[in-house]
């Protein structure tokens, strides 16, 4: 994301001070984070994000595609991401349920991407136009098998924009799908927001492999726990599968050790992620702690909110 690209985005949006809906802010945040691919299927109360993306993406050289359903949407997002483009989709409960298999696939192939769930009242089609926060546990446990997920939750339109950028940064940094678990209330609420200036916010760009094509091993981290991605078409050999795979990417479904190594690395690759907002940074405490250890006035305590769902690791033989 260079200044020229930033200017392009601002030009597409029109101005930096806006009276905007949360749904619009997810789109603006995505564009500011460098998202250039959107695939989705319309659903209340998430449709407005797709509307903005369909309007603005072509103006900044990106692609918007309306797919036949949410399964395909998530599939397209994963494909685009692995072709090197920051990608996202937006949906609500029924669509989120349909995406669950591919969310697990994205975890397994380590495809960075952002899924926004603008929660409405469920189960099933429930109350399509009414907000809720009923998918919170689904965000953690909706797909089968053992996996970890990062989910952030905004409470204002400005924060909707900021946290969408943060979602993209987490997804690229940890090579994992990241969920923005927002709700129909925030998604349809309009507030005054200011788009941050170039340089005022961080954009994490995807790290390319350092090794030359011949020596690149797709799922062997060069450092830490997160392997670097060779985008499709960049001249490197890579292999992606939702099956249990060796560092080479090739399936090895009979080897318990390979599976255990892979799945525990996936579960442990992102550290505990705590997000603090500017409003909290200026106050006496800058990181979130359990309420029992928080000092400050009751009002301050009330205003303290959890912004990220923290991966919890219990005592176990594997997580020694």
């Amino acid at each position: 994301m260079d200044r020229e690209q930033y200017n392009q985005v601002i030009k597409a949006i029109g101005k930096r001070d806006l009276f905007a809906q949360g749904d619009e802010a997810y789109a603006y945040g995505a564009l500011l984070a460098g998202c250039r691919f959107f695939a989705g299927y319309p659903i209340t109360p998430a449709t407005e994000t797709a509307e903005v993306m369909s309007l603005l993406l072509p103006r900044v050289g990106g692609t918007h595609i309306q797919m036949e359903d949410e399964i395909a949407s998530m599939g397209a997002v994963i494909g685009a991401s692995l072709a090197g483009v920051k990608s996202m989709t937006v949906t609500s409960g029924p669509g989120f349920s349909l995406m669950q298999e591919n969310i697990g696939y994205a975890c397994m192939v380590e495809a960075p991407c952002v899924v926004v769930d603008v929660q409405r009242s469920g189960p099933s089609t429930g109350q399509p136009t009414e907000p809720s926060q009923g998918d919170i546990m689904q965000a953690r446990w909706g797909s089968h098998g053992d996996y970890e997920i990062i989910a952030l939750s905004p409470n204002s339109v400005q924060e909707s924009l900021n946290l969408t950028i943060e979602c993209f940064n987490h997804s690229e940094r940890y090579r994992n799908p990241v969920l923005l678990m927002t709700d129909g209330e925030v998604g349809h609420m309009r507030e005054g927001i200011t788009i941050p200036d170039y340089g005022e916010y961080e954009v994490h760009e995807r790290e390319k492999p350092r090794k030359p094509a011949g020596e690149y091993v797709p799922f062997l981290p060069e450092e830490g726990k997160v392997p670097r991605i060779a985008d499709f078409g960049c001249g490197y050999h890579t292999y992606l599968t939702g099956l249990t795979h060796k560092p080479s990417g090739l399936p090895a479904t009979d080897d318990a050790a390979v599976h255990t190594r892979l799945v525990t690395r996936l579960a442990r690759k992102s550290p505990k992620i705590l997000t603090s907002s500017p409003e909290l940074k200026n106050s006496t405490w800058t990181t979130l702690r359990p309420p029992s250890s928080v000092t400050g006035s009751p009002l301050e305590q009330l205003r303290m909110r959890l912004r990220s769902c923290v991966p919890k690791v219990g005592k176990s033989a594997i997580f020694d």
């Binding site: 009276f19 209340t44 349809h188 609420m189 309009r190 507030e191």
Partner: peptide, 24 residues
Amino acid sequence: AGLLLGEAAIRDGKQAVQTQSYGP
């Protein structure tokens, strides 16, 4: 109408929040 009101308030330098509720 609500959207326009909120937008105008912002233009006046105030803070504004607009929400809505409607059926399918």
